[in-house]
Design a protein around this nucleic acid. Structure first.
Length: 258
DNA sequence: AACATACCCAACCGCCCGCGG
DNA sequence: TCCGCGGGCGGTTGGGTATGT
């Protein structure tokens, strides 16, 4: 065990150590963690340096409490992907998500859509937001349309989504659309701040549609991709960040439809 | 006010995986 | 093909803080 090597410091990091590590990463970049302690003049093991950087010092890390949107996303991704979803929320570290999941969400015994659907919660002082239902594609045209080449335009990033032919719209099932509207509004705002032209219809339809279409396209492009090694795709261009396995989703949605 | 309990979160540990020699 | 090494992940721990009694 590296941590048991003589002379290595364990425990909380000091500001001085943080500064040394930050300077080192800025100078040499991430990676080569075995060299970092030496380069930075730290008496820490490589793993400790890496964790400190990834979980705390990295510039784009979002700190503070998880929003309801984030919590809901975690639940949904966890249902779809299990623990693999960790680290896939923008700005949140795998450790953050893991801690959050272990300390909060797992205790709620969230095991199925029913619980999620039934769950209501409070944002801010009094406002109630209903958590969304798992997305169901009961209208088969959603699935068949997605898998065919019809109605599919270039959906990447800055999409002129509104002008494209739409698959049939699943009827709103409850106030969950509010949730999507909020989430998408926030993400569009972020994209705007970054100077991106990324913009989605706040109904969520366009976002989800493009997400699915891109997934299907990427699977098609992948060609030989077998189910076992399903293709994962990051959708950072959409503001929201997912790393999903299309086969997992298809399986899950199939179960929901049954 | 003091104590107990619950909760949060940074950090560590052990293991696994992928890659290169 | 095997082996060693580095990177990464999941589980767990422990200290600090918040909340309840």
């Amino acid at each position: 065990m590296e941590g048991r090597s003589l002379g290595l410091i364990k425990g909380s990091w000091t500001r001085e150590e943080d500064a040394l590590l930050r300077m080192c990463i800025e100078k040499y970049g991430e990676g080569k963690w075995h060299l970092v302690p030496c380069r930075a003049g730290l008496r820490r093991c490589r793993k400790s340096c890496r964790l400190r950087w990834l979980n705390y010092l990295k510039p784009d890390i979002k700190r503070g409490k998880f929003t309801l949107d984030e919590a809901d996303l975690i639940i949904r991704l966890h249902k779809l992907l299990g623990n693999r979803q960790e680290g896939r929320l923008p700005g949140r570290t795998a450790n953050d998500i893991k801690n959050y999941w272990n300390s909060k969400l797992s205790k709620e015994n969230i095991s199925g859509g029913a619980e999620v659907r039934a769950h209501t919660t409070v944002i801010g002082k009094k406002k109630k937001i209903y958590r969304p239902k798992p997305w169901r594609f009961k209208d088969s045209r959603w699935l068949t349309g997605l898998s065919s080449s019809t109605t599919v335009g270039n959906t990447s990033g800055s999409g002129d989504m509104q002008s494209q032919a739409s698959p049939p719209r699943p009827p709103p099932q409850d106030d969950s659309m509010l949730w999507w509207e909020n989430a998408l509004a926030v993400e569009n705002e972020k994209a705007a701040e970054k100077g991106k032209s990324c913009s989605f219809d706040t109904s969520g339809e366009e976002f989800i549609k493009s997400f699915w279409l891109e997934e299907m396209e990427s699977v098609k492009e992948g060609g030989e991709t077998s189910k076992g090694e399903g293709k994962s795709t990051d959708c950072y261009g959409h503001g929201l960040s997912f790393d999903v396995n299309i086969w997992d989703i298809l399986e899950l949605e199939k179960e929901l439809i049954m």
